[in-house]
Structure formats: structure tokens, C-alpha cells
Write a protein that binds this DNA or RNA. Structure first.
Length: 608
DNA sequence: GGGGGAAGGACCA
DNA sequence: TTCCTGGTCCTTCCCCC
């Protein structure tokens, strides 16, 4: 992509991930592929954005080169001492006692499609669509077609390419079959995706008195018998090396790296850094162009300069790669740190379309979170403009949420602040995650319905009979909103941990009966715990709160309108709550000014 | 200076 | 005719205490 001297072959400097060799692409005419990709991309907005990104990386490389050139002898000696000490420490941590096996299903999605439809066997196949390919069969890879490549480019590379849509239900089914087999060799196996896993086979080898090679063969045969699918396996003393090894004899093969220091060091000495997980296109380019590093062994030789130019954690990683070290212990169950959903669409600046899409994404995210019983506190809106510029905007909430309504209220606010804008992608991410159980039923961060009812202004038509106990219905504001959407409560029930919380909720079939004549909120409670509901559409098109008329076809406008009233109602209750918490001051003071609803969404604002 | 939030970016399949 | 992902984690910067 950078300015090139060979003006008649500009594609040679267009670096894309698609031109990197992946298993099954060894015999590909790289230049031909590069030329086609270049010609199809040139002049597009995507291309322009790639150029922009490339320029940033080039600038970074130039800065690092300058920094490198300025290093004094004294500094290099200093950093060499640090690197030498660190290498000794890392070496001391080397553990050659474990046998790790990495298993990777061969072109998994494409293989499942072929299994279901044998007529596809031997044909170039792509799983995905014209906009993006998830996996390509080995026959397609011969043409340079690969995962994460746009379908229209793949079509040019391979005109006979057959497209098959994704089917995650089937992938999950076959993945489960493979996992049943994995658990027989290591009950604590680590699944990294539907088609990949790490197995610690140390115990299996010693208990059965067989070698790791035999285990690998047996495992692959069993997988094939159980699923009809082939896989590739790598065996090594740690997970980093096992992963590299499984890629060597793909497809349907295996590679064993013995648990021997010399074998590991010989293997690693000529290994290109790009083969190592965690080193991608950018890291490879920086290490190569700044320091001339291309193999793992180079990392050790350049340890001092690495420490001088990069952060310690990065350099520690580089040195451990140079020593062929990797994870050897089975890690504790890794907690998910975030959960997200995003969608690409034809670029548009039509706000109604954008808000509708945002609502769809919020719904998907909410369902995903509820399935995993997760609550989140930081919501990030991701936007990709028509010119491929990516922006993220985040907000941290005062409470943990996972309902579509909560997510949408805050997401809409974030989006509104960015408009007008022509977008081609929107995404929502929830981070700052916590387990649902921790917040139920008495999470102090969440407003309970009990407190809601005792605020005073939402007149509780509480049944004061002996069997009513407000603590029985410790529902948060989130719950209150969720319950008010009848079908939404059902989706919450998907989560077994939360199901009990909602079992006592009576489904409200006649919504209108729960509103007073002014359209206000009425709460009632009895042993069956009747719940507050939100505004509704009188006659199907008149808002019960403000009387505005919005036809049924204006789905998004109606949704936003109801969201506004809900947020407004909650907000007013908060204000009243605040006023009531200082009753002794109220009489002597001017009545507190109504706080604008926007104040609730202001970044970082403390909410009472 | 440390912790936490926001924004951007790298990596992977 | 047109068409370049989705998900996650990490790093960096900045602000506040």
C-alpha cells in the first residue's frame, strides 16, 4: 500500500491478510491473487481507509526506527542486562513435563456442509455470503479463497465457487460430538471455538502406557468415526507450540514435537514469527521493518532492543516466544470479559433505519446476555461510517443491566449524540460483566420495586393482607421494565438462574386495566404480585401518556416514544425520591427545579 | 501515582 | 449492479482522587 518504486505492479505493496499463506494455500499463485484483490479494491472507500491505516503504521515504524537509531551504547548495555536476566528467569520456568495436544477440525463449516450434502464433495466451496466468507474448502483455497475474504473477491478468484449459507445449529451439533470425544482424553479440555480445543494428554499417556503419537492417531480416528469429519493435531510440551504444530500437516494430519529442550529450540529457531498466535499482520510488519526480526530465534538475539523500544509485557511475550515457552497448566475457567453484537448493512443516514437496527442489535445482545445469565455495566456503541472509519462511544451505568429496554435507552442516547452520520455498521458491547446471581435479589446497586413502591408517588394499591410481603417481590427497575413487556419476561426465563425470580409474576393480559383513567401508572400487589406496566397505544395508535398519534407502521418511532415515557417515569420517581429524602429542608426551600432527563445520561455524572 | 473509564486497535476464525 | 465480518481482549490516554 505504501508508495512503491515498481509503479507497474502496485499490488505488490498492497498488504492484506488474504495474501498470507493459510493451510491448504501453499501452491497458490500469490502475485495473481494479490493483483486481483488490488484491482477489485482500488479506489473503494475500504481501500482508502486501508491506506489511511497503513500510513499510521508506517509512521509508527518510522518513530520506532528513529528511537532505535538514537539508542546509546550505554543504554543498549543496560537493556541487554535486563534481557539476559529475564531470559534466565523465563528459562527457569520451563516445564517439559506436560504433553499438550491441539486439535483443529479441517475447514469445519465447509466440511459439515459437505457431510450434509455429499454432492459438494471435491468442489470449491465457501461458507458465507457475497459480502463475507467464514470458511473455504481446501479445493477453494487452491484459488486463494480463504476465510474472512469478501465473497465478491472470492468469486473473481474462483468463478466456479459454490456458496453455502452458515448453519450454526449444525456446527454446534457436530462440535458437541467432538467434545464428547475430547472429554475422554482430558475431562478439563479447553475449547477455544467450535472447531478447536487444547487437551492435556499427560495423564492419558501415562495411565495407558502409550505414547502421544498413538493417542493422536487414536483421537483422530475416533473423531472421524463419531462425526465423519477429519481434523489435524499438534502435540508439544505447551499450548503455544501445540497450536503451531497442528497447522503443519493440515488437513487430516498430525505433527509431534518431543518434550525435549533441544528439539524445542531447533523447532523454534527457524519458525516465522507470524506462525505464533498473538502475532498478526501489524506486529509482524513492525518487528520486521524496525528490527529485522523474522524468526522466533531473532527475538532472543534482539532482546535488548526489544526492551528498549517496547513495553515490558510485550517484550516478555516476545522473549517467551523466542524460548518456545507457552502455557502448560490448565487455567481456571476463564471469565468472559465482554459480550457484543454488531451488524453490517448498506450505508445509510436514515435515522429511523439506524434506530431500528440499533433496537435489533440491542435485542440480540440482551438475549445473548440472558442466556449466559450475565449483567453488564459499561455499554459501548461501535460505529463504522460509510468511509470505514470506526468510532466507539461508551458509557458506564449506575446499575448492572441486561434487558433490551435498558440497553436500548442508553444506546439510543449514545447514537443520537453522533448523528447525523452515514453508517455501514453498528454494534453494541457490554463489559464490566457480572454474574446475574450476584445481583439477585438484594443488589444494592439496583433499585428494588419495594423501594419503588415506598417512594409514595406511585400509589401502591397494596393489598395489606397478611400474606403480602414486599420483600417477596424484590424486583429491580430492570425487572419492572422487563415484566411490563409480556413476551420479554419469557426471554428472561431462558436463563435457569433467573427463572425463579420471574415465576411469581402474573402475566398481564389486559394491559389497559392496569392504567388509571389518566393513563398513569398503577401498581398493585397481592400474593400473586401484580406489576406496574408502561404506557400503551389507545386504539392502537394514541399514546396513553401524552395523546400523540403514531400509526402502527411507525415501529421505531413508537418504540422510541414508549422508551422516552418509561425513562421519564423512572426519572421523575428518582427526583421525587430525592426530594422526599430531605423532607425537613423542603418546606424552607424553594421547590427543587425539575432535573432535565438528559442529565441522567451525562457521562460520568453521579446519580444521587 | 494508582485506579477506572473511554477510545482505538490488534488478533483470530 | 453491487459487494471487505463479528467477537474479544489489550493498550493507551486521560481524568479524578
Amino acid at each position: 500500500m505504501e508508495a512503491t518504486s515498481d509503479g507497474d505492479r502496485p499490488w505488490q505493496s498492497y498488504h492484506t491478510v488474504y495474501t498470507n499463506a493459510k493451510a491448504g494455500m501453499e501452491g497458490v499463485d500469490k502475485e495473481k491473487v494479490q493483483k486481483i484483490i488490488y484491482e477489485l479494491s482500488e479506489g473503494s472507500k475500504y481501500f482508502e481507509n486501508e491506506k489511511r491505516k497503513e500510513a499510521i503504521i508506517k509512521q509508527k515504524i518510522d518513530n520506532l526506527r528513529t528511537h532505535h537509531a538514537k539508542l546509546t551504547e550505554k543504554e543498549i548495555t543496560h537493556f541487554q542486562r535486563i534481557a539476559d536476566n529475564r531470559i534466565l528467569e523465563l528459562e527457569a520456568s520451563r516445564d517439559l513435563s506436560k504433553i499438550w495436544l491441539h486439535i483443529d477440525m479441517d475447514a469445519f463449516y465447509a466440511a459439515v456442509a459437505t457431510l450434509e450434502n455429499p454432492s459438494l464433495k471435491g468442489k470449491p466451496l465457501a461458507v458465507g455470503s457475497m459480502s463475507m466468507i467464514c470458511t473455504a474448502s481446501y479445493e477453494a483455497r487452491k484459488y486463494g479463497v480463504r476465510a474472512a475474504m469478501p465473497g465478491f473477491i472470492a468469486c473473481k478468484l474462483c468463478p466456479d465457487l459454490i456458496f453455502v449459507p452458515t448453519n450454526f445449529e449444525k456446527y454446534t451439533y457436530y462440535s458437541e460430538l467432538t467434545r464428547n470425544v475430547f472429554s475422554k482424553y482430558d475431562p478439563d479440555f479447553i475449547a477455544t471455538s467450535l472447531d478447536e480445543a487444547y487437551l492435556n494428554i499427560t495423564d492419558t499417556c501415562s495411565q495407558r502406557g502409550i505414547g502421544c503419537e498413538e493417542v493422536a492417531v487414536e483421537l483422530r480416528n475416533t473423531i472421524f468415526q463419531e462425526t465423519g469429519l477429519t481434523c489435524s493435531v499438534g502435540v508439544a510440551p505447551n499450548r503455544m507450540l501445540a497450536k503451531v504444530c497442528s497447522d503443519i500437516n493440515k488437513p487430516n494430519g498430525q505433527f509431534i514435537l518431543p518434550n525435549d529442550y533441544n528439539a524445542v529450540m531447533t523447532f523454534i529457531s527457524s519458525l516465522p514469527i507470524r506462525k505464533v498466535g498473538g502475532i498478526g499482520k501489524v506486529s509482524e510488519q513492525i518487528l520486521r521493518d524496525v528490527l529485522g526480526i523474522s524468526t522466533c530465534a531473532d527475538m532472543l538475539q534482539k532482546g535488548a532492543v526489544l526492551y528498549a523500544l517496547f513495553h515490558q509485557c510485550s517484550t516478555d511475550f516476545f522473549l517467551s516466544v523466542g524460548l518456545g515457552l507457552g502455557g502448560t497448566d490448565t487455567p481456571q475457567q476463564k471469565m468472559r470479559k465482554s459480550i457484543s453484537n454488531e451488524r453490517t448493512f448498506s450505508a445509510t443516514n436514515d435515522e429511523s433505519i439506524l434506530f431500528q437496527k440499533l433496537a435489533d442489535i440491542a435485542e440480540t445482545l440482551s438475549k445473548d446476555m440472558q442466556k449466559e445469565c450475565l449483567l453488564g455495566r459499561t455499554l459501548t456503541l461501535k460505529l463504522k461510517t460509510a468511509s470505514f472509519e470506526v468510532r466507539t462511544r461508551a458509557t458506564t451505568l449506575q446499575k448492572f443491566v441486561n434487558s433490551k429496554e435498558d440497553i436500548l435507552i442508553y444506546a439510543s442516547k449514545l447514537l443520537r449524540a453522533e448523528l447525523p452520520l452515514s453508517l455501514r455498521l453498528m454494534g453494541l458491547r457490554m463489559s464490566h460483566l457480572d454474574d446475574d446471581d450476584k445481583h439477585s435479589p438484594l443488589d444494592p446497586m439496583q433499585k428494588t420495586l419495594t423501594s419503588f413502591l415506598t417512594i409514595g408517588n406511585v400509589a401502591p394499591i397494596a393489598d395489606k393482607s397478611a400474606d403480602f410481603d414486599a420483600s417477596d417481590i424484590q424486583l429491580s427497575v430492570r425487572d419492572y421494565v422487563a415484566v411490563s413487556y409480556g413476551n420479554h419476561a419469557e426471554s428472561l426465563n431462558e436463563c435457569p438462574k433467573t427463572r425463579n425470580k420471574y415465576e411469581s409474576i402474573e402475566k398481564i393480559s389486559d394491559v389497559s386495566s392496569l392504567f388509571d383513567h389518566k393513563g398513569g401508572v398503577v401498581a398493585s400487589s397481592s400474593s400473586s404480585s401484580r406489576i406496574i406496566v408502561e404506557p400503551y397505544w389507545v386504539g392502537g395508535y394514541i399514546c396513553s401518556q401524552c395523546g400523540i398519534e403514531v400509526p402502527a407502521s411507525f415501529t421505531e418511532e413508537r418504540r422510541q416514544h414508549l422508551d422516552y415515557h418509561l425513562a421519564d417515569m423512572l426519572h421523575k420517581e428518582e427526583c421525587r425520591s430525592l426530594l422526599q429524602s430531605f423532607p425537613h429542608k423542603e418546606s424552607g426551600r424553594k421547590k427543587q427545579k425539575y432535573i432535565p432527563i438528559d442529565a441522567f445520561f451525562v457521562k460520568g455524572q453521579k446519580r444521587f
